[in-house]
Amino acid sequence: MNNNGKIYVVGIGPGNREQMSLLALRAIKESDVIVGYKTYINIIEDLTEGKEVINSGMKKEIERCDITIDEAEKGKVVSIISSGDPGVYGMAGVILELVAKRNSDIEVEVVPGITAANAAAASLGAPLMHDYAVISLSDLLTDWEVIKRRIDCAAAGDFIITLYNPRSKGRVTQIEEAREIIMQYRKPTTPVGIVRNAKREGEEVFITNLENMLKHKIDMFTMVIIGNTNTYKLNDKMITPRGYFK
Rank of each mutant, 00 (worst) to 15 (best):
N3I: 14
N4P: 07
N4L: 10
K6H: 15
G13I: 06
R17K: 11
S21Q: 01
L22T: 06
R26G: 05
A27T: 01
A27K: 09
K29T: 02
D32L: 07
I34K: 00
G36A: 08
Y37M: 03
K38H: 07
T39E: 12
N42G: 12
N42P: 06
I43G: 04
L47D: 11
T48V: 13
G50K: 03
G50I: 05
E52H: 02
N55V: 08
G57E: 15
M58V: 15
K60C: 15
E61R: 10
E63Q: 12
I67W: 11
T68L: 02
E71G: 14
K76M: 08
K76C: 14
S79C: 05
S82G: 00
S83Y: 02
G84E: 11
A100R: 12
K101H: 15
K101D: 12
R102D: 03
V108P: 03
P112N: 13
I114R: 12
T115C: 01
A119H: 09
A121S: 11
A122C: 15
A122P: 03
A122M: 01
L124Y: 04
G125R: 14
L128S: 11
Y132W: 13
Y132D: 13
I135M: 12
L141H: 08
L141F: 09
I147V: 10
C153W: 08
A154Q: 04
A156P: 07
G157T: 15
I160C: 15
I161V: 02
N165A: 04
S168A: 08
K169Y: 04
V172Y: 12
E177R: 05
E177D: 12
A178N: 10
A178R: 02
E180A: 12
Y185P: 06
Y185I: 04
K187E: 15
P188M: 03
T189E: 04
T189P: 02
R196F: 03
G202W: 14
E204Y: 09
V205M: 08
V205W: 07
L210Y: 09
L210D: 07
L214C: 10
H216F: 07
K217N: 13
K217L: 08
I218Q: 14
F221P: 03
F221I: 00
G227A: 05
L234V: 06
D236I: 01
K237M: 08
I239A: 10
P241G: 02
R242E: 12
R242L: 14
Y244Q: 11
